[in-house]
Write a protein that binds this DNA or RNA. Sequence first.
RNA 1: GCGCCCGUAGCUCAGCUGGAUAGAGCAUCGGACUUCUAAUCCGAGGGUCGCAGGUUCAAAUCCUGCCGGGCGCGCCA
Length: 684
Amino acid sequence: MYLTLLKRLRETLAGHIREKYGVELSVVLERPPKLEMGEAASPVCFELAKRLKKAPRQIAQEIANSLPKIAGIARVEVAGAGYLNVFFDRAWFWERTRKEAGEALAGLAASARKKVIVEHTSINPNKAAHIGHLRNAVLGDTMVRLLRHTGNDVAVQNYIDNTGVQVADVVIAFEEMEKKSLAEVKALAAGKNFDYLCWDLYAKATQFFEEDKVRAGRLRGETLKVIEAGGGETAEMATVIADAVVGFHLRTMARLDISYELLARESEILHLHFWDAAFEKLKASGAIQLATSGKNAGCWVMPWGNEVKDLKEVNEVNEKSGLSEASNPDDEDQSKIIVRSNGTVTYVGKDIAYQLWKFGLLGKDFHYRRWPNPPDGKELWATTAGPNEAGTPHFGGAEAVYNVIDARQAYLQEVVAEGLRALGHTKEAENSIHFDYEIVALTPRCAAEMGYELSAEDAKRPYVEVSGRKGFGVKADDLITRMLAAAAARVLQKHAEMAGTELKQTANALAVGALRFFLLKVTRNTIIAFDFEDALSAEGETGPYCQYAIVRIRGIRRKGQDRGVEEASGLEMKLSADLQTPEENASLKKIMEGPESNTIWEVLLASGSLDYAVDAAIGAQEPAFVSKYAFQLAQAFNNFYHKHHILSEADEEKRAFLLGLTELVERQLVLALGLLGIEAPEKM
RNA sequence: GCGCCCGUAGCUCAGCUGGAUAGAGCAUCGGACUUCUAAUCCGAGGGUCGCAGGUUCAAAUCCUGCCGGGCGCGCCA
């Protein structure tokens, strides 16, 4: 509701200024520093003062006096050196927010509906997931929830690099180091801790490769070739390993309520010749060129550099004036290799093909099969080179694509977008969103706690980077398990009687809440220095704090029912029965504008600001805005809870109102946490 | 060498396209449970917003330079 009022205010103000002064400008609105200054404010008169050469305060006064009445806004005042302070009609806000909470979203959907692909998780399927992968998945999943909430048609895809070096390394480790047969690996892959086993094995393999670089190069080359070609025992072993590890990843993510629609595998990009199709397009358009001399001789390269933002333009220049240095394919500093001189395609090349497919621009499609036994029971599809299974949905062909990939890959993601742009797909290049985020590292203390030995240099740093290659890091499942145990212990302290399913579900909600909130409360470009103490915390700005507010509200409801007090909704009806025009309702006015009404208004205003938080979060692609919002709403409620004892309120009308308000807080907070993938328990 | 990101309270972080006295959480200290759950609330202390210039009526925010830290720039992915 806050967003609705802001929009209305902005439009009215802009229109009024246009009419009155003949000036066109965008109206800046902000939140005043104190509640007494109103709910919204605009410094627009300072800007106007410059243009009209008049005192800002005078202009502000003129506008305040002549601005037409806006529904939901009680009054506009002049403050400070020329601010316009805007005061909402509180009773109106109350009525409308309650209605909106129930109905608003369906209406929003139709106009905004867009087909969107979000790719996230995309862990190399050769080892267990670690804390850094969790940040990726939680960010991606939360963005998916936000986009769906605002009416978009979102498909979640998880890219599986099942034919890459990392899988090959584990295959080599099994074959060369462990001397395991395919049958033996199959047996291991069916076991309980196969992803952990691979984690250790991969770390050992890394050492093995470092011992003898020549041997490493030979083994990798041979194995990769066999895996990419398919067929034979080694290729099958790779498939067995990758598929099994993907299964573990899916189960790990399911513990955090994260699921997917499609597993897009690199093997199909190869076998269905996605690259060939992309290669033809890139060659035909001149987006990539064959280098004939220099360091990159024999490679197909994409010109790259500051001057080639618009390749077309450069090509035109070339025609007129011969070669510019920027697009000379032999100039190695300005070029990105897409096809090696031996004819094989690089990772970026495959990624361009995949990105083209996501937008429906490749002219090819995958084949699809159902993924057997998805952990959450939801339908899950995977790409296949075999025949299509009946009931295959349509994947791909999106208007916007979010690739959730860490910030270190920014350059490569730029190359991919540049590839689209060079093919003339400017709009799609702009809608290729590298949803980047900073890494999760460990605090030196945490690393020490886990038994890792640090160099003196590392020990002094604020954080130490995790490394799957070295087997250094906090495994996702270990962390979740530890958080579950901590949550269960905490619940039992307060509810010794709790057991069985109830205890399990409660602990689960709290552990997931703590973990997801921990990963979501900081903005994307903040490096998280992971520490168990911070992650396990349940006080202050945490998931459990937000959940606790809801638990309190539910406690009130239970108590109210036990006592035989009428249901909140019933009482509310009584209060609202004669509310044809809430603005004029004397009872409401008394409650909301009387003395000591500030805490009430703070909670109500926060409750009605979810739309604003969600809008800002999507606009800035920053899920942290929603976690910040949830925390602030919970905080406002906890404050209110201490000042107003609801069930013992003597004034019947006021009690009904307070009950209605808590119900509204619950609805909004449950919604906000739901967008973060966090559920609230009944008790905790 | 080139490019990107970061530097805000003891610690971890917010601070939206420039706007009112720079805010949270943790930690510290002092208060509040016979009440709807104290996983809570109230209060206190704590900041030359890395440094120096510039633009502006107005700069933590924009521009330039410097200092300190991180990352990226491969015929790896």
